[in-house]
Design a protein around this nucleic acid. Structure first.
Lengths: 205, 205
DNA sequence: TTGTCCGTACTCAAATTTGAATACCCTAGA
DNA sequence: TCTAGGGTATTCAAATTTGAGTACGGACAA
């Protein structure tokens, strides 16, 4: 689980409490390619603690302040070894192209042209915003951050540009009416064909 | 949840039992952009049944065969309405660029050059395989499937090509040693800078 | 004939994620 | 002065995902 990698990685820099980790993840824009939820963060911290990969260094309670105490964690020796493994595990994960629109496409012809066009335009706007954000990050933070972090931001930007091109193609298909057209074969015919298909093996993942 | 969209969508074509849905998802290569697990599939089917979006049309028990019975489902009227909503919901989801390598990059300088290079090469190979698979699908199934489904496959291919270019850049950075270099500023300096950063607002998502 | 692998069909406990809620302090405006 | 909104810091029940089973039949090889 990648949350654990991020936590251990940040704790290798210095001691932190969970909320500080959360701030830092946002500050470094890691949440652009990763779903950050408080629940998952605190759960992962508990797991790491229970497995002795991290340990409480200090518990800060501001006197006369009734806000929750901060538990500041540090990484243990065991944790440093685990970090290494997690890093290579993450680097070995199979990647999957994901986009919410992908899975709508097989059914998009059941949708309404107007509706579909509007929603694709929203996707496009969100995508353009993301590209702009990444450009700003590169300009203002780029020179000061590690090369790897820069490559992450550049990657997000590059993927965003591809997404944008693809969304534009989709919009074109929608406007021309092609996207909403049914298949030239009936579902039954397609199923027959696919069942009897014996061309080159297209294996799964 | 996208599993539900796929199930309802397939049941709009014709009645099916869960395992048939599973087969069809694979046959149509939807699992290239979607994590298909038996557990999630059966769970989603149960949920849909409990909410009366689908109902059992028939329970097939082959006599003299002790294998589990097949429950064949059909979509209800309520289910058809829910499908419409799910379709637009999915189309409205915010998209996120995801790649396992993204989150390793901020820490990649803690890794070993040889190791990192090997793993990136594996990523590259997997990515090239995916592109080839998608090309085969387009060639052999493309002409017979709906336009939307074609656009899905083309999208996966296009995203794959971007991924490939980006992995090649990363490999170049790795081989040159740049990727594993530390930041020009210390972590403390970077944190100071980011805290006091007051350029254009780079808002989150 | 016996073992072993693959495909069909489904189940389940345990791990994890989700989304919302809590509780507190501070600031700034009506 | 009051209160609405935003940031700090964490918790929790319920929903969902995961990963590893179960069980059977057929094919094929030794």
């Amino acid at each position: 689980m990648s949350m654990k990698l991020l936590i251990l990685g940040l704790l290798m820099e210095r001691e932190r409490h969970p909320y500080d980790i959360r701030q830092t993840i946002k500050q470094r824009n890691w949440n652009e390619c990763f779903k950050l939820r408080d629940g998952s963060l605190y759960y992962a911290v508990d797991q790491l603690r229970d497995h002795e990969l991290i340990e409480a260094a200090e518990i800060v309670a501001v006197p006369g302040d009734n806000r929750p105490d901060k538990t500041i964690y540090r990484v243990t020796e065991k944790g440093k070894a685990a970090f290494d493994k997690l890093l290579y595990d993450q680097l070995s994960q199979v990647s999957y192209p994901q986009h919410p629109v992908f899975l709508t496409l097989p059914f998009i012809r059941y949708g309404d042209q107007e509706q579909v066009e509007q929603l694709l335009l929203k996707q496009l706007a969100a995508c353009e915003d993301r590209i702009k954000r990444m450009e700003a990050v590169l300009e203002f933070k780029g020179p000061y951050i590690p090369n790897g972090s820069q490559m992450m931001i550049k990657g997000i930007k590059k993927f965003g540009e591809t997404e944008k091109e693809w969304l534009l193609e989709l919009l074109e298909e929608t406007r021309s009416g092609r996207l909403l057209q049914g298949p030239s074969w009936s579902i039954e015919q397609i199923e027959q064909y696919l069942k009897s298909y014996s061309g080159p093996q297209i294996s799964e993942e």
